[in-house]
Design a protein around this nucleic acid. Structure first.
Length: 141
RNA sequence: GGAGUCGGCCAGGCAAUCGCUGUGUUUCGACAUAGAGGAAAGUCCGGGCUCCACAGGGCAGGGUGCCAGGUAACACCUGGGGGGCGCGAGUCUACGGCUAGUGCAACAGAAAACAUACCGCCUAAGUCCCUUUAUUAAGGGGCCGGUAAGGUUGAAAUGGUGCGGUAAGAGCGCACCGCGCCGGUGGUAACAUGCGGCGGCAGGGUAAACCCCACCCGGAGCAAGACCAAAUAGGGGAACAAUGGCGCGGCCCGCGCUGUUCCCGGGUAGGUUGCUUGAGGUAUGUGGCGACGCAUAUCCCAGAUGAAUGAUUGUCCACGACAGAACCCGGCUUAUCGGCUAACUCUACUU
């Protein structure tokens, strides 16, 4: 218990965040986002992959009890800012809805050119499939 | 009614559920409220702001280029002038200077800038020869010449038409048109001119060719700049302890490295700030043809930073284009489904 003392104190804000989440159930506050380059690199080091036509998704267990999301939508993927925004919003929305199944994972979504041409409902479907697959794979490894 | 010219405005609406960002309140459960554009775009100009540089002047370099006004400023806007196009409403216009210098121009054409003469036209003057005739005359041919009217080329060839004139011609002369200069008149000016006078009349084009002239311009940008500042590396100083240890060295001196504590500055990751109250909007009045100015009242209207304004469902219709703020303004340019509307022009028809 003495050894874990530091970890517990760090976890306190997490616990609060968790409480907030359970109250509003499917929110997407700042704690659920990957922000710094270090956090992205952590995922890139040992990722579980799930690739499709529209996206490549990487994930890695993060030792926390909530998931975190990072987005990489390059200009090559979608030329106009409006299209890039649309993809980001769709991914966030889908992530928000399926976050229960992804708890404890850091996820990075990389957009591909194909994603640009697909409709909203198609993209949501494919994302949902990816989430399930990732959850399974990471559980095994 | 048809055809057309010009401005201005709107840019899917509503409801439910789940979310995001800022602000305020909070009983820390939440609640309230605000939340992309006309171009937010291109980054092409002009400013503010910030830091750096700076006595003044010149050179270089860049920009602007009819006039007057507006403006913080502009390459923008408004009004006006000249020129092109259109029956017209209108529209387009880098629109100072090739009577300072240098350069450039394919092909065609005789000739494209020191002008010149290919086809032509003409033999008057001068001169030679021939024919006719008795002769100082007439005719023909040549030389030396004259000419630029006509033809040919070209985007462009020394103003046009007519008459006179002549050997043939020519602003050679005249008339009209055009042009230039001087003066007058109108206009703030650009400029205009059914005004007056003078001159036969410039000498091609190109200055988004160098250039000349006039005027303007310091550089970099919010990743500007300011503040806080970890780990690790590392700089300077002080104190304490030992008078040590390690390396260089045969030894001493000396030099370098090494302990603990404190202080100082520089400063990376990261964070805070700059960051939205402004050449601001909206009314009303007022000056101005107008751009716009002035006065009063009133309002606060995105501020993210791994980057908010969305998703799903229902519903209505015209079935929704181009497209996403990133320090802030003023312009320009480009993209754009549709729709509404002011003013004006031409034209058909009816009364």
């Amino acid at each position: 218990m003495h050894a874990a003392h530091g970890v517990v104190s760090v976890c306190l804000p997490k616990q609060q965040a968790r409480v907030v989440l359970s109250a509003s159930s499917l929110g997407f506050p700042g704690e659920l986002r990957l922000k710094t380059a270090d956090e992205f690199n952590f995922v890139f080091e040992k990722p579980c992959r799930s690739a499709g036509k529209s996206f490549t998704i990487l994930a890695r267990p993060n030792q926390r009890d909530y998931p975190r999301l990072g987005l990489i939508i390059s200009k090559r993927c979608a030329k106009s800012a409006v299209k890039r925004n649309r993809l980001k919003r769709l991914i966030r929305e889908s992530f928000r809805h399926s976050q229960e199944g992804l708890a404890g994972l850091d996820v990075v979504v990389i957009g591909k050119t194909m994603a640009n041409t697909q409709s909203n409902s198609d993209l949501t479907d494919t994302l949902n499939r990816h989430w399930k697959e990732l959850a399974k794979r990471c559980e095994r490894s």
